[in-house]
Design a protein around this nucleic acid. Structure first.
Length: 386
DNA sequence: AATTCCCGCCACAAA
DNA sequence: TTTGTGGCGGGAATT
């Protein structure tokens, strides 16, 4: 075995960004957002995009939570498009979210009264590796299944979005987001670990969201703290700044968050152990995608759609206008208005109050009343410069 | 060293 | 059982 050259590839570097969720998401959208796309077949998408199935779940889940897709059946989703976002957002705001409805034939028994509302873990046990903590009620309790499936990604995404929408500031630092979306940021040591795990999810979500141009990653003021800003449909485009990502800042070496260059193809024969041959239509993809992008652009311009996904084409001439015209529906316009507090930059102090207020508000219902699971956040947070 | 986050093991659910 | 879903965290790429 002295063969280093693999398939005559002159490419060395394995770049992580080539396989980011953000990129994948962009490609996904490009693929299904053109005109008359209807249903989305997951494994079909996986093949077309040249990724493992698992990754498709990742992006689909977050997309579904904001209304871009809906699960129709096993392995099949219905493409709603960006138009589904405002609606979902509204519901989110009302608290009537719940994206997954369907007729859960889970008639179950016993348990009547309310239904949903997970979060009933009095003492969630996060024991990994070792099993302890569950000392109290031992005996018959080998597997306390429960744990509503709705515990992550989808929910996390919605909560994250809510957070972004309810806060007065148009920026939420990663830290705060993590803190709010989890229990407080106390230092229970053992939870410290779980915290890190959640943060990873946050990154996943952020990547997808930003590739949809719903959020943008920035930096808190001038601090080094990374933060996210809600762009929504309007974002900062009030001046026509552009919602489209600037043409990949590779010149500056800055690492753009969401979109990147188009995924060229997979790498080596990865899915070997898989079933039948996945064929090799993966390659031609890049070409198609380019076409898709064009189509999307046209589509967006032509219809009254939003300008959500101006996925920058790999290297097409600058023929497309970055200057997207913002002609959203009046509906959404008003909606957005009511949503956005018009940036009342009073004082950070005040700002933070609303922060917690909002949080407590929409988390109260989820909590279910038993006020002892996750503390509403404490005021110990120091506001930047004291 | 710290942050970002891809990869895929594996548990759980549906077919 | 097999197949579809998707938590969850190791650890490598990036910063």
């Amino acid at each position: 075995m002295a063969e280093k050259s693999e398939s005559g590839s002159r490419h060395h570097a394995y770049s992580r960004k080539q396989k980011s969720l953000g990129l994948l998401c962009s490609n996904f959208v490009s693929l299904y957002n053109k005109g008359d796309v209807d249903t989305v077949c997951l494994d079909d998408a996986a093949i077309k995009l040249g990724v493992e199935r698992r990754r498709i779940y990742d992006i689909v889940n977050v997309m579904e939570s904001i209304g871009v897709l809906t699960r129709k059946a096993k392995n099949r989703y219905l493409w709603i498009g960006f138009k589904g976002i405002p609606i979902t957002l509204e519901q989110l705001k009302e608290g009537t979210a719940k994206e997954h409805n369907i007729s859960s034939l889970e008639s179950s028994s016993a348990k009547v009264s309310d239904d949903e509302d997970d979060d009933k873990s009095l003492d969630h046990n996060d024991d990994y590796g070792e099993g302890r903590l569950c000392i109290t009620d031992t005996a018959a309790k080998p597997k306390c299944v429960a744990e509503r499936k709705e515990k992550s990604l989808g929910q996390l995404t919605q909560n994250f979005v809510k957070l972004l929408l309810t806060t007065n500031a148009d920026m939420v630092s990663l830290d705060d987001a993590a803190k709010l979306l989890l229990g407080d940021g106390q230092n229970p040591a053992y939870l410290r670990n779980a915290n890190a795990a959640k943060v990873r999810r946050l990154y996943d979500i952020a990547n997808v969201l930003s590739s949809l141009n719903l959020i943008e990653k920035t930096h808190q003021s001038d601090t080094r703290k990374p933060a996210f800003r809600w762009l929504g449909t309007k974002g900062k485009c009030e001046n026509g700044v552009t919602i489209a990502l600037p043409p990949v800042a590779q010149k500056s070496g800055k690492r753009m968050f969401g979109t990147e260059l188009t995924n060229v193809e997979v790498k080596r024969a990865k899915l070997l152990s898989s079933v039948d041959n996945k064929s090799n239509k993966t390659q031609v993809l890049s070409h198609d995608l380019k076409e898709c992008n064009k189509a999307v652009q046209r589509q967006l311009q032509g219809s009254k759609s939003f300008v959500f996904g101006p996925f920058n084409p790999p290297k097409t001439p600058k023929e497309e206008v970055i200057e997207q015209k913002f002609e959203n529906d009046p509906d959404f316009e008003s909606f957005a208005s009511s949503m956005r507090p018009a940036y009342h930059s009073q004082a950070l102090h005040d700002l933070f109050s609303h922060y917690m207020e909002a949080y407590n508000s929409w988390f109260a219902e989820i909590a279910g009343g038993s006020g002892n699971l996750q503390q509403p956040l404490k005021k110990s947070v120091h506001i930047g410069h004291s």
